[in-house]
């Protein structure tokens, strides 16, 4: 079942990861590498960025769910990802509600109507 399809990766706080793992998205592969990262207070931005890039490089991941406040920390890496697979979805976190103006996809769509596009 799960072998043929792609995985859903999660980068988020503890509650987000626990919730989505309850939903059944979690995996520990043969190399004991998980498809999720629980971001705590002491997690460094470098670690988050490296994990995000490793998820992008993996062929078995179709969607990456990431808390928006974490996405803000590695915005340059998310904006640099232009491929459609894996799709990056920004989701809210407990402390930070979802803000559409920060979402990378909606910002790109909004950029459609700037003066530069009509030149």
């Amino acid at each position: 079942m799960a072998g043929r399809g792609k995985l859903i990766a999660v980068i988020g706080d503890e509650d987000t990861c626990t919730g989505f793992l309850l939903g059944g998205v979690g995996e520990l592969n043969k190399n004991r590498k998980p498809n999720f990262l629980v971001v705590e207070k002491d997690t460094s931005i470098t670690e988050i960025e490296e994990t995000f890039k490793s998820f992008l490089a993996r062929n078995d991941i179709g969607i990456i769910l990431i808390n928006q406040f974490i996405a803000e920390m590695i915005r340059h890496a998310i904006d640099g990802h232009m491929q459609s697979i894996p799709a990056v979805l920004e989701i809210p976190s407990k402390e930070h509600p979802y803000d559409a103006s920060k979402d990378s996809i909606l910002r790109r769509a909004k950029g459609m109507f700037s003066a530069e596009d009509f030149r």
Partner: peptide
């Protein structure tokens, strides 16, 4: 758990 297998997958 120490061994986790996915129960949900995505078909692209």
């Amino acid at each position: 758990a120490s061994d986790i297998e996915p129960l949900v997958c995505v078909h692209v």
